[in-house]
Amino acid sequence: MAFKFISVAVAAIPVASALSLTTRATCSSAVESCSSGADSSSISSCCVNKPGGQFLQTQFWDTDPVTGPNDSWTIHGLWPDNCDGTFDENCDSSREYNDITTILQNNGKSSLVSYMQDYWQSNSESPEQFWEHEWSTHGTCVSTLDPDCYPNYKEGQEAADYFQVAVDLFKSLDTYSALSAAGITPSSSKTYTSSQIQAALQKVTGKVAVISCSNNELYQVYYGFFVNGPLTNADFVPSTIGKSQQTIRA
């Protein structure tokens, strides 16, 4: 069943603590993306995400056809937007990998593949095709995942880092449980107001996220974040999302 809504405003959910991922070149300090400090030319784009310093973590609730578990939203992607509300896509054609599964397995992430097969699905193409699209379209635009940022770079390891961070962030944003705790559950007849949704989710961080609806049915949620230091730090700071970023994207 779908979530039916009268309006489309919602708040973000808190994020997880930092991760321990691939060894990277050392940065002197963790600078928050989109801050005044991040603008300095002395700060390497390997040490702070720029210009794509605001990240949108997007989630699906698919009903046509039904995709993913019946008690959880699923991952759409993790998108780096520029700090002015614009965004870049498909930033490096040389790294448009066509076998994400093998890349993850070669980097010791077989369990991550298993999780993604359940929680990172498309309702219109294979999981592998979906992952390839998300990486080439969005992952290649993350400055701190550039191969030059790795001291002993091996092809594909930056993609493995991207998917690990995206999944771990998703796990910290349990949209279904947050709504369910307030009695907001999928229904073919019930509707919910924006104030009900905000009351359920703004208790967590107070940061407003964005909802996408189709035919008055909720199908997507966007959460905004800045990041302290490289993306692999996974040190996310919840942020609001500007109106210019609230566009239909894939």
Rank of each mutant, 00 (worst) to 15 (best):
His76Thr: 08
Gln105Arg: 12
Glu96Pro: 01
Leu104Asp: 06
Ser136Ile: 00
Tyr150Gly: 08
His76Cys: 03
Gly156Leu: 09
Ser143Arg: 00
Asp99Glu: 06
Ser126Thr: 14
Glu128Leu: 13
Glu89Gln: 14
Asn90Tyr: 15
Cys149Val: 07
Gln121Lys: 13
Asn152Glu: 14
Pro127Thr: 05
Trp131Thr: 09
Ser93Val: 10
Ser143Thr: 14
Lys154Asn: 14
His133Gly: 01
Gln117Pro: 01
Pro127Ala: 02
Glu155Ser: 15
Asp84Val: 05
Asp146Met: 07
Glu134Gly: 09
Leu145Tyr: 03
His138Lys: 00
Glu132Ser: 11
Gly108Pro: 06
Ser110His: 01
Ser124Phe: 12
Ser110Phe: 07
Arg95Gly: 00
Asn82Glu: 12
Gly77Ile: 08
Met116Leu: 15
Ser110Asp: 13
Tyr150Thr: 04
Glu125Ala: 11
His133Trp: 11
Ser143Asn: 09
Gly108Trp: 01
Glu89Gly: 12
Glu155Arg: 10
His133Met: 08
Ser94Gly: 01
Leu78His: 01
Leu104Glu: 06
Trp79Cys: 04
Asp148Ser: 15
Met116Lys: 02
Gly85Asp: 09
Glu128Arg: 05
Thr102Arg: 12
Thr137Lys: 14
Cys83Val: 10
Asn106Val: 10
Gln121Cys: 03
Pro147Lys: 00
Thr137Phe: 06
Asp88Gln: 13
Glu132Thr: 12
Glu128Ala: 13
Ser110Gly: 09
Thr137Asp: 10
Thr101Arg: 12
Asp148Lys: 13
Cys149Gly: 03
Val113Phe: 05
Lys154Gln: 15
Asp146Arg: 07
Trp79Phe: 00
Thr102His: 10
Tyr115Ser: 14
Pro151Ser: 15
Ser143His: 08
Phe130Thr: 06
Pro151Asp: 15
Glu128Gln: 13
Gln121Leu: 15
Leu78Lys: 02
Glu89Leu: 05
Asn98Arg: 09
Gln157Glu: 15
Tyr115Gly: 11
Val113Ile: 11
Glu132Trp: 02
Tyr97Thr: 06
Ser94Lys: 09
Asn90Lys: 06
Glu89Asp: 13
Ser111Ile: 09
Ser94Pro: 00
Asp92Gln: 00
Thr101Trp: 04
Asn123Val: 06
Met116Ile: 09
Asn107Leu: 02
Ser136Arg: 05
Glu134Lys: 02
Phe130Arg: 00
Asp99Val: 03
Phe87Pro: 01
Ser126Val: 00
Ser93Leu: 05
Trp131His: 07
Ile100Gln: 02
Glu89Arg: 11
